[in-house]
Computed example of a mutant assay.
Amino acid sequence: MSSIRKNTYGEPTTLRDYRGSVITVECRAYDRNAKLDRKMLVKQYGASFTFLQLRRRLTLGCSRMNTDDGIDRCQTRFPCLLAAGLSFNKEDIP
Rank of each mutant, 00 (worst) to 15 (best):
R55Y: 03
T59V: 08
Y30G: 06
C74P: 02
F49W: 09
R5M: 01
Y9N: 02
T59N: 01
C74N: 10
D92T: 09
R19T: 01
R28E: 05
Q75E: 04
E11L: 08
L82V: 06
P79K: 14
Y45P: 11
L86C: 15
T14M: 02
L82G: 05
K90N: 14
S3A: 02
A34K: 05
E11T: 04
G10H: 02
S63V: 12
Y18S: 02
R38H: 15
I93A: 05
M65D: 04
V25G: 04
A34Y: 13
D72M: 09
L36G: 05
R56L: 14
A29M: 12
A47I: 03
R16E: 09
G85I: 01
L58S: 09
L60C: 04
R16P: 03
S21F: 04
R73A: 05
A47F: 10
D31A: 15
R32M: 10
L36D: 06
S48Q: 10
R38A: 14
R56D: 15
Y18H: 05
D68L: 14
L86Y: 14
L58V: 13
R56A: 15
I23E: 03
N66L: 14
L15A: 02
F51D: 05
D31C: 14
G85S: 01
M40R: 08
T76H: 03
R5N: 03
R77H: 06
T24Y: 04
L58R: 08
